[in-house]
């Protein structure tokens, strides 16, 4: 009986012991999204070639050429192949405006920032900067043309 009473007293002590105060700091929960998350709208073929041309030539594409480029993309079932053909044709045009390779290697960080802004309209994240810094430093043959080409065929460039 005595043991039973001690057990009840002990349990009641636990039951009535202090509770931790709940603190509220007035902070609203927020989902953390990647920097490119706002790009959810797919570019049309027309938008893609217009923007690509502006990025590479720093001027607007004529309406006749725009229609022709759109038709070229439509005429091939593999759209990525079509885009690669168009990009490589642009790269073969003497009017294309690219930084020189020595300029790129003189200040790789700035080149990466400029390239992200030029193609993705956003600054690079630290990991993106680090990837390209390492990639360009580790391969002396990588050219501006190749970097631009990679951006122009990437998935993010298909969205805005």
């Amino acid at each position: 009986m005595r043991r039973f009473l001690i057990m009840i007293i002990t349990l009641s002590l636990f039951a009535t012991s202090c509770k931790e105060d709940a603190y509220t700091y007035g902070i609203v929960d927020t989902d953390i999204l990647p920097v490119n998350a706002v790009k959810s709208k797919q570019k049309t073929d027309k938008q893609y070639v217009s923007i690509l041309y502006a990025n590479l030539f720093q001027k607007a594409l004529s309406s006749n050429r725009l229609v022709e480029l759109e038709r070229v993309i439509e005429s091939l079932g593999d759209k990525r192949l079509a885009r690669e053909l168009i990009i490589s044709s642009f790269m073969n045009d003497p009017a294309v405006i690219l930084p020189s390779d020595p300029e790129m290697r003189d200040d790789i960080d700035q080149f990466v920032i400029d390239t992200y802004k030029r193609f993705y309209v956003r600054p690079p994240t630290e990991i993106e900067k680090e990837f390209f810094r390492d990639y360009i430093n580790n391969d002396p043959n990588v050219t501006v043309e190749q970097v631009y080409f990679a951006f122009a065929i990437s998935d993010e460039y298909m969205f805005y």
Partner: peptide, 8 residues
């Protein structure tokens, strides 16, 4: 690399 970073 670029495609892996992009969510779509």
């Amino acid at each position: 690399f670029l495609d892996n970073v992009f969510q779509f």
